[in-house]
Design a protein around this nucleic acid. Structure first.
Lengths: 218, 218
DNA sequence: AATTTTTTTTAGATTTGTCTAAATTTTATT
DNA sequence: AATAAAATTTAGACAAATCTAAAAAAAATT
């Protein structure tokens, strides 16, 4: 029930890569963890004997139910620490991840449950990602502004904040509506504009104002 | 400047064992770390090349100035976390050590400085041990109740809490006053009484009430 | 001072997690 | 379907931290 830092990092990375139904490949995981494919194969053999992954040599892998539960536990710890760092210690939004990467491996159950209580049972971390409860359940990703996506992330428009005719006019010209699936490609620091793509169409750039008024779900 | 968990545990243990002027032996350190003498020798060769200890084979070792600074940094992290666990997360006094043993190895400077600020720059941890500041300085061990000493620890009486004639009468009968050096030999769980010795005299037992009203410095 | 006992170090092995280079399997292309 | 390319695994090596057993040095005892 207690795993090494390295094992935990593998479990977490597989969880992030496997999404809903995809099987994860050796190369993809090696890239994610900045390690070599051979190392991934080695570790996967170990995780398989521990029944944390379903792994068929040459055919990718996914977490077992037990592995998934473990991953959610690690993610819970990570996100609770992120919340603590941001909310209590006043870390900047972009600094919390790095430190939480280390704190997440301190695996005292009591520590995490008491931390959660102390923080007031937060439901989302500072990035807007949901925090699993002690049984592994979490709310579905909440809406975020399109402008808060990171490059290459994808989201579905679920709400438009400002119902002014001017906005609706622009949206219809851009062919964007509720349910439109948008991939964010680049962010331009200069004016906050972002380059996006809808489906397989040609990418185009929209203004900061527009991007901040489009609410999406990852 | 960044050391492994294992190296940090060795540095910390050497710091605790070396006290003021003693040199630490291989066997003593092995016992402290619950490892084997051969392992200690191996690690000490490494710590020597990193200039953290002064080590002459077969003749014991002490931390170098750099090693001492490192030790104080680790102890700082440990005691700040203990304070956090006790004060904020409401851990019991006796549960904090175990968890702090793990948290202390997360070595982000910024994390610890911000944690210290958040906690209000505490000077002592829940055990009464002083917390080093960011430059490694700390106050000398504060007064504690005699009843909080551990068996075989020694302390000097520096204050008597309750100036009632009844207490002073007992103290004079027991020949205890400010400056008296007391060694605690045993604690009796049943009624909290403790067996003590003053100098080379015969040991004797005093009540809980008395032991709790004698303030000592270790 | 010689001998025994204790302490410490060395030598060689083990485990975990990583790597490179080579071999193998799968996938893509002609 | 055969071949080339890409992905994956195996084989063997290495560093960190540990261990056991044996050797060497220091300390204690006769």
């Amino acid at each position: 029930m207690n795993y090494s830092v390295s094992e935990e990092n593998y479990i977490k990375a597989i969880f992030h890569l496997q999404g809903e139904g995809e099987t994860v490949t050796t190369n993809a995981l090696a890239a994610e963890l900045k390690t070599r494919p051979a190392s991934v194969t080695d570790m996967l053999k170990k995780l398989k004997t521990k029944k944390l992954v379903n792994y068929q040599p040459y055919h990718g892998f996914r977490l077992s139910p037990e592995g998934k539960k473990t991953a959610l536990g690690i993610i819970r710890r990570h996100r609770l620490w992120e919340y603590f760092l941001s909310e209590k210690l006043k870390f900047e939004w972009n600094e919390v991840h790095e430190v939480a990467e280390h704190l997440e491996h301190v695996s005292s159950r009591k520590l995490i449950d008491k931390l959660e209580e102390y923080l007031g049972y937060p439901k989302f971390d500072p990035h807007g990602d949901p925090i699993p409860d002690s049984s592994g359940k979490m709310e579905s990703s909440p809406q975020t502004m399109l402008s808060q996506l990171e490059p290459t992330q994808t989201g579905v428009v679920i709400q438009v904040s400002n119902q002014s005719p001017a906005l609706l006019e622009l949206l219809s010209a851009r062919k964007i509506g509720i349910g439109t699936k948008i991939e964010l490609l680049r962010k331009f620091v200069f004016d906050g504009s972002v380059e996006i793509r809808i489906g397989r169409s040609a990418p185009f750039i929209i203004s900061e104002q527009l991007a901040s008024n489009l609410f999406i779900r990852k």
